[in-house]
Write a protein that binds this DNA or RNA. Sequence first.
DNA 1: ATATGGTTTAACCAAATGGTTAATAACTTT
DNA 2: AAAGTTATTAACCATTTGGTTAAACCATAT
Lengths: 204, 204
Amino acid sequence: MKKAKDENTEEQILVAAKNVFQTKGMDGARMQEIADKAGINKAMLHYYYRNKQLLFEAVFKNAFSLLAPQLNAVLNDDSSIEDKIKNFTSNYITFIVKHPYLPNFIIQELNRNPDFILKMKDNPAFPNIEKFKIQVDDEVAKGVIKPISAEQLFINIMALNIFPFVAKPLIMAFTSANDKHYQQLMEDRKTEVANFIINSIKNS
Amino acid sequence: MKKAKDENTEEQILVAAKNVFQTKGMDGARMQEIADKAGINKAMLHYYYRNKQLLFEAVFKNAFSLLAPQLNAVLNDDSSIEDKIKNFTSNYITFIVKHPYLPNFIIQELNRNPDFILKMKDNPAFPNIEKFKIQVDDEVAKGVIKPISAEQLFINIMALNIFPFVAKPLIMAFTSANDKHYQQLMEDRKTEVANFIINSIKNS
DNA sequence: ATATGGTTTAACCAAATGGTTAATAACTTT
DNA sequence: AAAGTTATTAACCATTTGGTTAAACCATAT
């Protein structure tokens, strides 16, 4: 079978490209380095992905499609707000430990080229806040949680969960933490963050 | 006076370099573009700053020295925790509206080269959490605020304030906001964020 | 006015970089 | 096994890029 080799090479390229793009960014990445990491000739990159931009987009879409379902867990799940926050916080931190470069990569590249997100919006799995909005307004009306807009709550949830990984070097410096200490801080946040949010919004 | 011209050129270079480095990053920045923006010959960049790396470091240190005092307002001010949070949140958001590229620039470049922060630590104004730690432990002991570690509280304060600007393109996409709507969200956060934090930690 | 010293420029350079090409290798189909 | 097709490579190319150099410029001191 011919396909085996093809897909293998194509996949190896994507893995290598992910590696390089996510650590160095579009501008810092070198096609030669990607080729070396994939163990192939530089011309192969163009054979399969035509040019740097398209290879980058393949990597970016791939990364984004990993992150999106995580956020959808907050926006479109059927459980209560309190449960969502608890689950998301724990799950997200576990998730990000496995993909440490991911949030930073996405944020960095979107800031470099904000229009890029338009290409992502086509995807039906693109996170949408509408359902969450209804739920928040509902729970506020019922008095389950204190008045807050869905947008602000969602921003807060994202901020508290994502920021500590994006700003890792800053946090390590300010708290004089080594890698082990930093990991412990993040581990603690799996419950700490959910409590922090729920404390703030729950009516008692 | 000869000096007038010197300092003027040197300053113009720094302004142009800030402009380009903060929007494109170290890797995306081009010396030619900086020279053009400064209205001078490319050789002048090397005459005053020797090479790209040193010019970049001048810009980075400059940016960092703007951010540091903001964070020190939380860490080293003498007011109560509640007051600090209220003041910081409002001040920081006002500050960042004036320097929109700053937090993203610092975070992006520190992730590209984490060792870089070591050079910043020499500065005596480098944010240090020790005093804040004592204060938090004290207010927790007195029962003014609920039990929380100073590190986690500081991370939360930073996250809630800084993240929304770093992740602007994501937030705009998820909330389907245009620029005006986004600005309004940030404006609301000047009080919203402080309330959110205080709600969560204050003993009642 | 002229010598002096820092400032500025145009022209240049070597290395790096994304991309192409033409030939070869390997596999499939007939 | 011959023909056809896809995969892979080495060599090459044009452009970009950070950096250099030697000469010109200009303000000031003598």
